[in-house]
């Protein structure tokens, strides 16, 4: 989906450009929902306790893995807005070096008018998703071994 050669910042700018086409919140939310719908399906076998993001009203899973020097990710949620938010993160962060993911500037979420979702009290999991992804990125960045989140041994599992 995302162009692996583009940087996190370039991808974030492209998303901001896309969202700027809408002049009201309804359009932006409909587009967010579309982003969720376009997420590649996540294998049910990857929806485990280890990939589940807690602290949300809906169920959310983010699976991360290492593919050579890159960190890949898949995600899903049973709520469409949450799935859209997961989709945004995956569009920007999938297939990027874990070091870059760990340090990524995600202020584009504010720029596209989704700031209210960043609140840690919002229970939508965006805050938890970002924290989890950063933690796993940090773990991958520090480890030379091929690794993924604890329940899954490789990206092909």
């Amino acid at each position: 989906m995302a162009d692996a050669s583009s940087t996190i910042d370039e991808r974030a700018r492209a998303i901001v450009d896309d969202f700027s086409l809408f002049d009201d919140w309804i359009g932006r939310y409909e587009y967010l929902i579309e982003i969720g719908k376009k997420l590649p399906p996540m294998d049910d076998a990857l929806k485990t306790d280890a990939t589940r993001i807690h602290g949300c009203q809906s169920k959310v899973w983010i699976h991360t893995a290492r593919d050579r020097d890159r960190m890949t990710m898949q995600g899903d949620s049973d709520a469409m807005i949450t799935k859209g938010l997961a989709g945004l993160l995956i569009r920007v962060l999938d297939d990027q070096p874990p070091e870059a993911v760990r340090e990524a500037d995600l202020s584009f979420i504010d720029d596209i008018g989704m700031r209210e979702h960043l609140s840690s009290t919002r229970n939508n999991g965006l805050h938890s998703m970002i924290e989890q992804i950063r933690t796993r990125a940090a773990r991958l960045a520090e480890s030379a071994e091929p690794a993924s989140d604890s329940a899954v041994s490789s990206s092909n599992a």
Binding site: W25, Q57, S58
Partner: peptide, 20 residues
């Protein structure tokens, strides 16, 4: 429709409801 999705849109429409 997931309650969370409904609640989020209702909130944007000025409707304070609880979901969950």
């Amino acid at each position: 429709i997931h309650p969370y999705d409904a609640g989020t849109i209702l909130d944007r429409l000025g409707l304070a409801v609880r979901t969950g």
